[in-house]
């Protein structure tokens, strides 16, 4: 009678089969290998116009970012610097992510208005603004996975278990854990806490 949960029973027969049109409407995800991309294409030139119209107010005409809104281009070679600039060009490992995210979530406040060809064009323009393609480039579902993303090899799976657990699974020190203690940094000096 006590126990974490109900026994995993046979199927209850709840819900109803999803119809193909329904799956098509909601399953818009694009995988790194390009699966999920619709047929279509778009040029850097078209992308520039579309970007200027739909995106530049926040992300800047050259995808350089406006104020606090995200910068989408630049930052090459800064990942090992003091303040890395992470953009589609400098950081994102897969182009599929750009297509998927622009298609599902942008423009901010008016998501899901773009047609596939428009998304291809905008993604082409973002590649161009990152100097990853030429100005006459046309992106399509056919050449999509040929695009090389600079930071594709920049990720490793979580290795905290191997790297950190050996350091931090340990007997905690209780007394005489250090000689002296100095204050090295003060928040009130920085003074960025919002008013309450």
């Amino acid at each position: 009678t006590l126990g974490a949960g109900p026994a995993l029973a046979e199927r209850l027969g709840l819900g109803r089969p999803a119809l193909p049109e329904e799956i098509a409407a909601w399953d818009v995800k694009v995988m790194p290998d390009g699966r999920g991309l619709p047929v279509g294409s778009g040029t850097v030139a078209d992308g520039e116009d579309l970007f200027s119209f739909h995106c530049a107010v926040c992300h800047g005409e050259f995808a350089e970012g406006v104020d606090n809104w995200p910068q989408l281009a630049g930052g090459e070679g800064t990942l090992d610097d003091a303040d890395p600039v992470k953009t589609v060009g400098s950081y994102w490992p897969y182009l599929s992510t750009v297509w998927d995210y622009v298609n599902r979530s942008m423009p901010f406040g008016g998501a899901q208005v773009l047609e596939p060809d428009e998304v291809y064009a905008i993604v082409a323009y973002i590649l161009y603004s990152n100097f990853l393609v030429d100005d006459d480039f046309e992106l399509s579902n056919e050449n999509f996975i040929e695009v090389q993303m600079p930071n594709v090899d920049g990720f490793i799976p979580d290795d905290r278990d191997e790297v950190e657990l050996p350091l931090f699974v340990r007997e905690p020190c209780m007394t005489d854990c250090k000689e002296g203690v100095e204050i090295t940094m003060r928040a009130t000096v920085l003074n960025v806490t919002p008013d309450m």
Partner: peptide, 9 residues
């Protein structure tokens, strides 16, 4: 994995 924006960028 889909490698979506929330798990890459």
């Amino acid at each position: 994995p889909v490698e979506s924006r929330e798990e890459t960028s």
